[in-house]
Nucleic acid binder design. Structure first.
Lengths: 344, 344
DNA sequence: CTGTTAGCGCCTTCAC
DNA sequence: GTGAAGGCGCTAACAG
């Protein structure tokens, strides 16, 4: 593997001169430049950015630590991150924590060691130690999707507002007994969504008796288990509110097993859209998050910090959610009506 | 940011001794070890892996260059890659080429410069220059999903076989006029799928007149456009074979716009499954690829090469596809039958 | 316009 | 058990 020294030798110049050609920095005569470029081509020289990073203390690498790339919401966020990052010349290292604090911490440690220039982190836990660790090393950080009790840049959706809208929608449809299939208590978005749900019910003067909040995992299995619990109740709620897309799918499956129809027997709404591309027949009423925008915005914010934007005041960007009404929340089955948002 | 020198000073030892403690290499007395460990903790020292990599020439980083993480097939592959990689202590840098050779080449160049230890590449093009570039730098490489005309490790699905099975399935259902909505000619999987389609028709002695292969992009828009073309034909085919999941979705949309029912008016099958998690109601007959396994296998192969497995003989791993028959290919609508593969 | 010197942070080699 | 010297590949800083 050729080094800059080899290039310099072959071109009959000093290494620093070759460096100047490679980085188009400083003055180099056309003649010299030509010779260096020829040497580079002849040797198939590839600059070693590791060495450069050691000197310059910039790796042009961002760390993206999220819970599970398999969830299309995160996939879309990741794509937003990667697009903005690569546009700015940064690479992205991707890690899946599966909501495990241990994994999260291990990843963060390694990525700090690898000198990532900045972090985009979805904390597995409100009390995540990772945030403190990153801040202690003075590495720029943007927290994604969730809040933590610390002064830190954050980009997230308006979970409270979205949940409020979704619950309002159900109330307007005439539902009074609405069960919430929530995520874990330790995750801020779960609690925010519960808060929005409660606010809507409070406003509507719905009895405490008719409120049900169950806490579980943000997974299909979680949604399935919570729904099973709900179905054992008597009287049963007339509507279910799933706190994310996976929970909704699990709930749907449990309902199907119980031979209950949506929306005939029970209405179902959810936070997070399922990607329209992958639903031949979009069906679920949702509060859709702007996932791609979240990734973009967070990365722009992070890159801003890297280029020295004053970070003394942490910024918090809250993106709105979009209520998309589809068939799953309609009293009367409207099997053949065209959907509000098309497959396009 | 504390360095190993700071740690050494504070512990009253030489840097190399601190290094030995950090890497648990060589002999260090318990007393010294304790002092060094205390210093590390007090300073919040984080070892600099960039510096280590410069010396050791190992970055413990793999490059994953694929077309679009937004496609659930690739998401799942990526997850398989990341799981195996992180288990072995490697990080994964993710890049989306969007099937652009230019982007691919740029990414590969940068990642070579960043001294990625190995590459997992989905070549945008059969004649990809990137493969040659990586091989010229003697960096281990596994090609994913597609083949290129070069001696190189490859992990892919049996596209020909899967397409054959799908076409057979349609023939058994009584279809004779089957149109193929293919991907680009430059992509080996597209051509392999066409080959499988042709073999099945040849065997069945289906006339050349009844064969239609259209080439387009592996996207929803591609599927939509190709289907529009098909719909303009007279007589129309009775079945469509989409060469991947996105094409199928685009086709479905075009059919819906034309007020044609699947499978009533026309049958539809596709290569690639849509992730069961995200189909409330799985519907499409497919040849499903083992995406997660593909990611795992490729990464294991790559890590094997890194640890010095003899690479003189390139290996080619071909994973089988799984035919999953669902409603979209049934003549008589069987609206309420339970699906062969459940949502589980 | 070009070159010399030195050092980024770490670890291999060899000596004590 | 421990340490000193040197170098991985590159580029600031300062000459010339």
């Amino acid at each position: 593997m050729a080094t800059i020294k080899d290039v310099a030798e072959r071109a009959g110049v000093a290494p620093i001169t070759a460096s100047r050609v490679i980085n188009s920095s400083g003055y180099v005569s056309d003649e010299t430049r030509r010779r260096v470029e020829a040497a580079i081509k002849e040797l198939g020289y590839v600059p070693n950015r590791i060495a450069r990073s050691l000197r310059s203390k910039q790796t042009y690498t961002l760390a993206l630590v999220l819970t599970d790339i398999t969830n299309p919401f995160w996939t879309t966020v990741a794509r937003g991150v990667e697009d903005v990052a690569s546009e700015a010349g940064f690479s992205v290292i991707l890690c899946n924590t599966d909501e495990s604090e241990g994994k999260e911490h291990d990843y963060v440690r390694v990525l700090l060691q690898k000198q990532a220039d900045g972090f985009l982190l979805v904390p597995a836990h409100s009390a995540s130690r990772s945030v403190a660790l990153i801040q202690a090393q003075q590495v720029p950080l943007v927290v994604l999707d969730r809040t933590v009790p610390r002064a830190v840049d954050t980009v997230r959706s308006d979970s409270e507002g979205g949940a409020y809208q979704l619950t309002r929608h159900l109330l307007v449809q005439g539902h009074r007994s609405i069960a919430m299939l929530s995520g874990p208590r330790e995750v801020s978005t779960a609690m925010d969504r519960v808060a929005g749900y409660r606010r809507a019910l409070d406003e509507a003067g719905v009895d405490g008796d008719l409120r049900m909040v169950i806490y579980g995992a943000f997974t299909q299995a979680g949604g399935y288990a919570m729904t099973k619990q709900i179905l054992a109740l008597d009287p049963r709620p007339t509507a279910l509110f799933a706190a994310n897309n996976f929970i909704a799918v699990g709930a749907f499956r449990a309902l199907r097993e119980a031979e209950m129809c949506v929306p005939g027997d029970v209405a179902l709404v959810a936070f997070d859209d399922l990607p329209p591309t992958f639903l031949m027949d979009p069906f679920l009423t949702v509060a859709a998050q702007r996932a791609y925008e979240m990734g973009q915005t967070a990365t722009q914010l992070l890159l801003g910090r890297l280029s020295g934007a004053d970070s003394s005041i942490p910024r918090e960007v809250v993106l709105p959610t979009d209520l998309v009404v589809r068939r799953s929340s309609h009293r009367q089955s409207t099997k053949n009506r065209s959907d509000i948002n098309d497959l396009s």
